[in-house]
Design a protein around this nucleic acid. Structure first.
Lengths: 154, 154
DNA sequence: CTAATTCCTATTAAATCACTCGGCTTTCAA
DNA sequence: TTGAAAGCCGAGTGATTTAATAGGAATTAG
């Protein structure tokens, strides 16, 4: 019941990108260095974010990545689901009504348990917008004001 | 971000045990057969439940397992945490204040995200008591009333 | 005693994770 | 026009975890 590094690194990368949003295209190498993440590995996470329209790649020299829509239109849920797949604790809880796997879903007691967990997770992450995290990141780094690099942990 | 079979099988096993609570000690072989779970594997999950005082083993012939406290005093959270370990989405979110790993927790923006996810998961599972699931299981099986075996899926 | 049962430890095949690596394509800048 | 900077893509790999299986010791009712 843990998020993988995909979700953790990926969220940090997107926050980093969002914080530097008005600096034009940001090269992956910059994000990787600031966040202390292997660039090769980050490169694997990006396609997942690109596919759902969170980031956009700009190829060629002086290229890099930008957010493909404003930060207040991107939720943490969007980011984490792109990176981790659906956030349901079990397979059988699908999008609502579309029970593919679980055959005896009528007599299944545990299903309601998984549903409640699933809903609470998704509600939580959908309630946090990327813009909030950007604000918080800037505020925290101003207070600390030691270095301007947006180094994030966890 | 999925529960393992430990949590899924284990919860079903405990529900099964709770449903047959007044039949005396229940052999693992019975639970395994009713739930369609390998007995050898179930045997590995039991120690986790025993350690936190959810079930109690009765050794010898005619032995088996019983709940070690009433079902309304056992939450789904107790069961899942026993089987899966803590339900936090990342390591660095610990019991509140005991931040062992994450060093720069002050400037860590994502930490609050993990905290909110963690809280919502734990609130959800702690709000469901085993007794509720037993009630529901009995009700559902009466309505369906095809077989008396408490076969659960998911 | 003996059969049933819990209890404990070891082994294992398969999957997943967290990367690394190499090569290709696109584009800008000099 | 060419070269370097970047994104893009797929294959490979060691370590860890998962989901079991297997075997045997301890315990107890009948």
């Amino acid at each position: 019941m843990k998020l993988s590094t995909r979700g953790r690194y990926g969220l940090r990368a997107v926050i980093d990108l969002a914080v530097h949003d008005n600096d034009g295209a940001i090269a992956l190498s910059q994000i990787a260095e600031r966040q202390g993440i292997s660039m090769n590995y980050l490169e694997q996470l990006i396609p997942k974010l690109r596919k759902v329209g969170i980031v956009k790649g700009i190829r060629g020299a002086q290229g890099g990545y930008v957010l493909s829509k404003p930060a207040h239109e991107i939720s943490v849920g969007d980011i984490l689901r792109a990176l981790e797949g659906d956030l349901n604790p079990v397979e059988c809880v699908e999008v609502m009504g579309t029970d593919t796997t679980c055959t005896n879903s009528d007599t299944c007691v545990t299903k309601n348990v998984w549903k409640r967990i699933s809903d609470s997770i998704n509600d939580a992450v959908d309630g946090i917008m990327l813009s909030e995290l950007v604000e918080e990141s800037k505020r925290v780094n101003n207070e600390a004001s030691t270095d301007t690099s947006q180094k994030l942990n966890c």
